[in-house]
Simulated assay, not measured.
Amino acid sequence: MIRSVLTGTGSALPVRRVSNAELAAQVDTSDEWIVERTGIRFRHLAGPDETTATLGADAARAAIAAAGLSAQDIDLIVLATATPDQTFPATATKVQAMLGIDDCVAFDVAAVCSGFLYAVQVADSMLRTQVHRRALVIGAETFSRILDWEDRTTCVLFGDGAGAIVLESREVEQQGRGILATRLHADGRHNDLLYVDGGPSTTGTVGKLRMKGREVFRHAVTNLAAVMTESLGIAGIDAGDVDWVVPHQANARILDATARKLGLAPEKVVVTVDQHANTSAASVPLALDVAVRDGRVKQGDIVVLEAMGGGFTWGAAVIRI
């Protein structure tokens, strides 16, 4: 059978690392308040010369190198972001140019924090047709650009960064490596719980992020547990056979509650929210790269990726690394 096999991971973070204490000097908050409610201790914030595209390109270079490839080996780029460099063209095309790729298919996917999962399914579908051979799937964000820095309930939650993976179309056996299952959902009725109050066709402005955190928390725990169960069922994998869960890094309490709902041991959950905060579409590939590079996630492991974001959108993927 033909599967999309993950052959490399990479990530990139802005130079500036900001602690809760530094934020508390600017916003009416405290390290204790942030840690207790979110588990976040640090986040990285992009400087003037750091953009979604530059971070995405850096993560892509690391993933390509880890896969033992050159940029010219890539013939598909799918980039997930809610904070593109420009309204158009797609940030993926800017990354393509930065990587020195003369010609390939390159486009963006917009599904906020679930964007990387959406991008994975899109790339997987295209690779299985074998029209494309190797894909870069990137999640990259500069969420600091759309935060209201006077709203202490939201500005402390987010950070900037990028993560990337290389997927390669390969013929494998039933028990071989690759993406085993993906499952996506959306429910636009919940727009007012997590959104940005601007846009080209409404206000002509970028807008700022707005969120009703308590309601989002409730939906996140229910939806994420359900979609992980769905995707494992499609893959024919028991929860007990999962080696690692790499979740969207939104809030430590959501990660804990979701793991409990599924009966997963906390030590099987990759957690980076304390160091990076919520980097939206970048959070899953960024956390995956951390766990691959520190040796936790190894070839042959069964890994579940999951995320939920504004829209609401949510999804999961089961991969044999």
Rank of each mutant, 00 (worst) to 15 (best):
V166N: 10
E141W: 09
V78C: 03
S19Q: 03
A226L: 07
V5Q: 14
D197R: 05
G159N: 05
V206F: 07
M1P: 12
D238P: 05
S231Y: 01
V303I: 12
L13P: 03
T52C: 15
A24Q: 08
M308Y: 08
D301M: 01
R16T: 13
E22G: 02
A97W: 09
A53D: 10
T202M: 12
S19I: 02
V120Y: 02
M1L: 13
D108Y: 07
D75Y: 01
N251L: 11
A282P: 05
G39T: 01
V105A: 09
G300V: 11
V270P: 01
T258N: 00
E306T: 13
H219Q: 06
S144Q: 10
V318E: 15
R145D: 14
A317R: 10
T91D: 00
R133Y: 03
D49R: 12
D102S: 15
T153N: 11
A59K: 07
E50M: 05
F312R: 05
T87P: 13
L194D: 04
G47R: 05
V297H: 06
V269S: 03
S11C: 07
R61E: 14
G233Q: 14
A66H: 07
A317W: 05
P247C: 07
T129V: 08
A60V: 08
C104N: 03
W314K: 12
N20D: 09
F143D: 05
F143G: 08
L117M: 08
L193I: 12
V290L: 04
E215P: 01
R41P: 01
L127Y: 00
P89K: 07
F217S: 04
L69W: 03
V304G: 08
A46C: 09
E36G: 02
A111M: 01
A220D: 12
G176A: 13
L76F: 01
A281L: 07
F107P: 02
T182E: 07
I321M: 15
S19W: 02
I254Q: 00
E267D: 15
M228H: 03
R177F: 08
A220L: 00
R296Y: 12
A291L: 00
P285G: 06
T202I: 09
G295N: 15
V137M: 03
L127T: 01
I138Q: 13
Q130W: 01
D148H: 09
R17A: 09
T7R: 15
A186F: 11
I34D: 02
V172T: 14
E168F: 15
I234A: 13
T38C: 11
I101K: 13
L13I: 08
E230K: 10
S4V: 10
L76V: 06
V122T: 11
L6F: 07
T129I: 02
A257E: 15
I234M: 09
Q174N: 14
M1T: 14
G300I: 11
V292P: 05
A65C: 05
G240E: 09
T91W: 14
T54K: 04
G240P: 04
M228W: 06
I2G: 12
N223P: 00
I319A: 11
F42Y: 14
S280G: 10
H44M: 00
V27F: 00
A97S: 12
